[in-house]
């Protein structure tokens, strides 16, 4: 335990945290409260009157097959994005660790994609994989794949996962590189002397010791896939074709701001909030305990 720092002044500490608290209150707790309130309201089609209906919106949303589909889509999308983004980043980080010359340049270049805005990243992939004009789509088609993300739901899912993962790889890469550097070199040497080949060293020493980083990234990547990929989905597929890439966040937007069913949308965002809180709590409670070594 680090020793506690105590401010002698009683007012100053509150003043210092006040801006942060104000921001959190205005931009998080207030909207969250509004969402909670709105999720129990039902509006007329013209938005003139609203009625307090308790949990009717939740009942409606949870019994809606389209919502169940959205849960399924989100699960597939998040898992795929997190797994692809993390495994590719880990592979790149391990490789980058072996680079001797130009290590700095290599790493810097690897970080650039993170600076690309989600919608732009989405557009990049949209163009590259557009069935009629996309460069890579042509190659895919020539290689014998019937590639059409505009009509085929699986193809569309692959496309958004690729775009979402691509953007997150840089971030993960950065953390994996730092994680790898934090592993004492003598441990790797000791393992080599203990007769472990390179692959074995990776799986028995490096990978377990990276666990804290991997865990952290798992939380970050899940949250990212849940929330921050809205721009990509909006730009690339708009939730389609059909509803095959309509994630929970996208559905909140679609129902609330496109279809103007505000009560449903608010109920969905409350459910989403609960899901993410639960997910993070579970991750911290059960996974984190197993991943820290002193």
């Amino acid at each position: 335990m680090t020793p506690r720092v105590v401010f002698p002044n009683r007012v100053l500490p509150y003043l210092l945290v006040a801006p942060q608290l104000a921001i959190t209150l205005v931009f998080f707790y207030w909207p969250a409260g509004q969402a909670l309130y709105q999720s129990m309201l039902k509006e007329d089609p013209f938005g003139l009157r609203s009625k307090f209906v308790w949990f009717a919106n939740f009942e409606k949303v949870l019994s809606d097959p389209a919502y169940m589909n959205s849960i399924k889509v989100t699960t597939v999308f998040s898992l795929a994005t997190a797994i692809v983004a993390m495994s590719v980043a880990l592979l790149l980080a391990v490789m980058a660790d072996k680079v001797v010359r130009g290590k700095g340049i290599y790493r810097t270049l690897m970080i650039w994609p993170y600076a690309v805005a989600p919608a732009i990243a989405g557009m990049l992939f949209l163009f590259m994989f557009n069935p009629s004009i996309g460069t890579l789509a042509v190659l895919l088609r020539k290689a014998g794949f019937a590639w059409d993300p505009l009509l085929n739901g699986t193809d569309a899912m692959m496309l958004v996962v690729t775009a979402a993962a691509w953007k997150q790889i840089s971030y993960n890469f950065l953390f994996f590189v730092a994680g790898l550097q934090a592993i004492p070199k003598t441990l790797i040497e000791a393992a080599a002397i203990d007769g472990a080949g390179e692959t074995k060293r990776f799986w028995t020493i490096i990978f377990p010791l990276l666990a804290p980083t991997t865990f952290f990234l798992l939380v970050i990547n899940t949250t990212y896939a849940f929330f921050d990929t809205f721009g990509i989905i909006h730009a690339v597929t708009g939730g389609g074709p059909g509803k095959s890439t309509e994630t929970l966040v996208y559905k909140v937007y679609n129902d609330g701001f496109v279809n103007l069913i505000l009560g449903d949308s608010a109920a969905q965002s409350v459910i989403l909030m609960v899901i993410v809180i639960a997910l993070t709590a579970v991750q911290f409670r059960y996974v984190e305990k197993k991943v820290h070594y002193g």
Binding site: P184, T186, L187, E189, A190, I193, D194, P208, Y293
Partner: peptide, 13 residues
């Protein structure tokens, strides 16, 4: 060969 390192290099996990 076997080596004993200055910082022991025990596998912490």
């Amino acid at each position: 060969i076997a080596m004993v390192f200055q910082n022991y290099a025990l596998y912490p996990h």
